[in-house]
Design a protein around this nucleic acid. Structure first.
Lengths: 200, 200
DNA sequence: TGTACATCAGTGAACGCGCGTTCACTGATGTAC
DNA sequence: TGTACATCAGTGAACGCGCGTTCACTGATGTAC
């Protein structure tokens, strides 16, 4: 039964703790990050952290959820933008979605490492899987509206894999500087279209 | 300056330490695994571990390298099998490569988690990137032989992304039971072909 | 084939340190009258 | 507008535990003659 931040100062502390946690994931990794380290960097004492988070994993979970929520906002906006334009628009503008999602990841220093940590920890992995499934559901919804004749499960599977690859590309961006970001978007978009068009 | 195992017993101990480390990565994750825990599970005392490994990361690095070496063996065999058959064979049999690589991952209990840990730790990530680049180089070599007219860098970038997605699919296999393995292979193969054929 | 010695492969026990977490408390902010 | 009180947001200091790692040593295996 943890408190949620009610006052402005508290809200700032809460967000700062998450920001610091993300930065530390990038610096020392999930295997070396610690609550004491997060607190020290954030300029608060440990009990301040435990006021808002039940334990260490709750911090990382909240960090991951905050990041994925921001990415989902991008997704919702993208879907809303192309929903009325037929399935061709949804397929043609995949690159936009990749680019905008990548912008969210790039904006936060430790975002890519947060996503990686979310994959690597057995304790956190379900959070990521759940989010990817949610994203897939929303995409299925958007596509199915224009393609009532397609088997829903088939569409789900194709989009689920597309989501996985989309995030894989996102996370690879900063890691492989031998491929320009725009090339990654273009190639990934091309691949995903290849998997979606036969269904469409 | 660490010893390498010379006698049979030592070799067995060395391999057992890596096996246990992989299993523990799956059970407790990279953020909770410890040398003491590995040793206890392997039935040896800590100095036995430090006889062969300089520190904790050396264990995980060796584990990752052993796994990726096994996957690379599969790759070499696959390339050798299709090298003489023209580029169509290389493109058509991508699913075989995915299937055989996945078999290696499935054979070892913690293999998928080893790959995830290798991505999530800033200390270990370079090992994985290097291996993926190596795999890409070998593939470029194989493809380029049949396609001398293609820009080598373009080919490299396409294959690099294909490698990333191949491993992403591999790691997703056990995590997303809503997609059958064969469907993952088929869809992934289809996507990768989509990115390779325009170049070919 | 047997023995002496060198090398290899471990054990037993502990070290200092930082971990995750908690207790009892103080200071800051909001609210009622 | 000022004061009394409730609630919120932190601090200071420490806890026990397991971490990564090491020292000095013993037991097992290989080798030379």
């Amino acid at each position: 039964v943890k408190a949620s931040p009610r006052q402005e100062r508290a809200q700032a502390t809460y967000e700062r703790l998450l920001d610091v946690a993300g930065a530390l994931l990038a610096e020392v990794g999930i295997e070396r990050i610690s609550t004491n380290l997060i607190c020290a960097r954030a300029g608060v004492t440990p009990p301040a952290l435990y006021r808002y988070f039940g334990d260490k994993y709750a911090v990382l979970a909240a960090l991951g959820q905050r990041l994925m929520a921001r990415q989902n906002d991008v997704l919702e906006a993208w879907i809303a933008r192309h929903r009325g334009c037929g399935v061709a628009a949804l397929v043609d503008h995949i690159e936009d979605l990749l680019r905008e999602t990548a912008a969210v990841t790039r904006a936060e220093p430790g975002a890519a490492w947060t996503l990686r940590a979310l994959t690597a920890s057995p304790q956190l992995a379900p959070i990521r899987v759940e989010s990817h499934r949610y994203v897939t559901d929303r995409l299925v919804e958007a596509y199915q509206a224009h393609l009532p004749e397609i088997d829903r499960e088939t569409l789900w599977q194709r989009l689920r894999l597309a989501v996985e690859f989309g995030f894989a590309a996102d996370v690879m961006l900063q890691e492989e500087e031998r491929i320009p970001a725009e090339t990654v978007f273009a190639l990934t978009g091309q691949m995903l279209r290849g998997a979606l068009l036969p269904a469409a």
